[in-house]
Simulated scan of single mutants.
Amino acid sequence: MLDAATLAAALPRWCAGVHAAARELNALDGRLGDADLGATLDKCATLVEQALPEMPDTLEGIFKRCAQASAKASGSSFGTLLTVALMTSAKRCAGVASLDHPALAALLAEVVSTLSARGGASLGDKTVLDGLQAIHVALAASPESADARRVASVAARSALDAFRHKPNRIGRARMFADKTIGMEDPGMVALLRMVDAL
């Protein structure tokens, strides 16, 4: 069950995890993109940290405030996608006090759909969408007694493993075509690091 207090308590851990992963994500992104993924997310985390003292006490408010913070961090397209994902979550949580597993899964399904429409990626393109979809499916199938964070972590890692030996099909990485086979998608790794940080 996710409520505002649980989410607020998780944010400092999320920020710390993003800071710790920044160098790794820059290196991964440098093989397939602009080498700025880690730097962008690091800035997002810093801006979220600055907002922590005045964080609202509702799920909608927290997601919206985090989206506003992330929007200030210019950089990679992933930063924009993170902002859109957070804003989509805020809208979904309007008037909602807590989210059980089915509700979390439904929220993720909406995030995947929105990000696909915004960024142009489809499931199977070897992007963060595939990791999010894996978490959505796992949460939808898990009992309420299961630890949602554990379920999400296992799902994100399984998706990363499943797509490692497939080619990237969108973004700058697609220009490398079959050379991306055997390589980890930086966005999927970023998702896993963020989930594990929780």
Rank of each mutant, 00 (worst) to 15 (best):
194 M>C: 14
73 A>Y: 05
139 L>A: 09
66 C>H: 09
42 D>W: 11
190 A>I: 00
91 K>N: 14
182 G>K: 05
166 K>L: 15
42 D>K: 12
53 P>H: 11
139 L>D: 06
172 R>F: 06
39 A>K: 07
60 E>D: 11
91 K>H: 14
152 A>E: 07
165 H>A: 12
37 L>V: 08
129 L>A: 10
77 S>Q: 06
150 R>F: 00
163 F>I: 01
4 A>G: 09
161 D>W: 01
179 K>Q: 14
23 R>H: 03
95 G>W: 03
114 T>S: 13
159 A>R: 03
191 L>Q: 06
198 L>R: 00
178 D>P: 00
86 L>M: 10
67 A>W: 01
140 A>M: 05
41 L>P: 03
191 L>N: 08
163 F>L: 13
97 A>N: 11
23 R>Q: 11
43 K>V: 09
137 V>M: 08
112 V>C: 00
23 R>T: 12
160 L>N: 10
178 D>E: 15
51 A>Q: 07
26 N>L: 03
111 V>Y: 04
190 A>Y: 04
109 A>K: 13
8 A>R: 15
53 P>W: 10
85 A>C: 06
147 D>I: 02
24 E>P: 00
72 K>C: 12
49 E>Q: 12
43 K>I: 03
195 V>P: 08
108 L>F: 13
31 R>W: 03
154 V>N: 10
16 A>S: 13
86 L>E: 06
1 M>N: 11
50 Q>H: 12
16 A>W: 03
47 L>T: 00
7 L>V: 02
